[in-house]
Amino acid sequence: MRESLLRLLAMPLPTALSCLTIGVALALPMGLYIVLGNLDALGRSWERSIGVSVFLHLHMEDSRGQALAQRVREWPEVGSVEWRSAQESLEEFRNWSGFGDIIEGLGQNPLPAVLSVRPSEAFPSAAQMAALREALVALPEVEDARVDLEWAQRLRELVQLGRRFTVALGLLLSLGVVVVVYNAIRSSIAARRLEIVVMQLVGGSPAFVRRPFLYSGLWYGFGGGICAWLVVQSYLLWISAPVARLAQLYDSQFALSGLGWVHSVALFGIATFFGLLGAWFAVVRQVAQIGAEEDGAGF
């Protein structure tokens, strides 16, 4: 195993190039995966406040509004209902907008009472939210209803789509890794043809003959994993400052989460696995061929 590593390090340029190729191929889906994970976390943190704002008819008695809140609360798809009187709405608007005086001048409260309805499900689909809104609008007491933070939901659906895309991309590029390693090992098998023939002649088992090449594949994968890790980490480092500024702008506690050790281990594991797989294909094909042509060995 050590010997196969030294052999690779003895030709640093081709080895480095192969590792770099593998690294870039793996960094792309891995980086995308991490970014999507962050977007998803962001979306979820917003989505926790998703709900339907239900505007009741103007000048409805408070007791009717409260009774309605009580009834809606019983619905299975509803998690919680908060009732806010027209008066409270007005207070809030006055504090928040600074247009209190104008409203005062109107003489009459132009704002309706509002129900804030939260779904029982933590992460409902867009269809579920639309259905909830429909049901609420259909009530006689209700003037209108609006789904809040609809775009957060859209974001989540986009992230989900992005995840699928990433998985597909990852599979495709992993195939690329297998091909890169396959080629590297194939040429090293060709270069060490004599060694293979002699080993078979002196009674080396197929497993023994394969072993150094499989180790090389392992090292290629591992080296590629290191490259990918470095690429992803530096990329995250690079975008972390702008992201922090952006989060500050939106008064958010959001901080970019990088490659944790779970992801790092997964990355190295995947890289090594595909390296080994590429080497395995190369070895099974090429060494078997050399075995069949063994008599060219000089009998």
Binding site: Q200, L201, V202, G203, G204, S205, P206, F208
Partner: peptide, 9 residues
């Protein structure tokens, strides 16, 4: 392989 080890070539 084992059989070949008993024979030198």
């Amino acid at each position: 392989p084992a059989l070949r080890r008993q024979i030198g070539v």
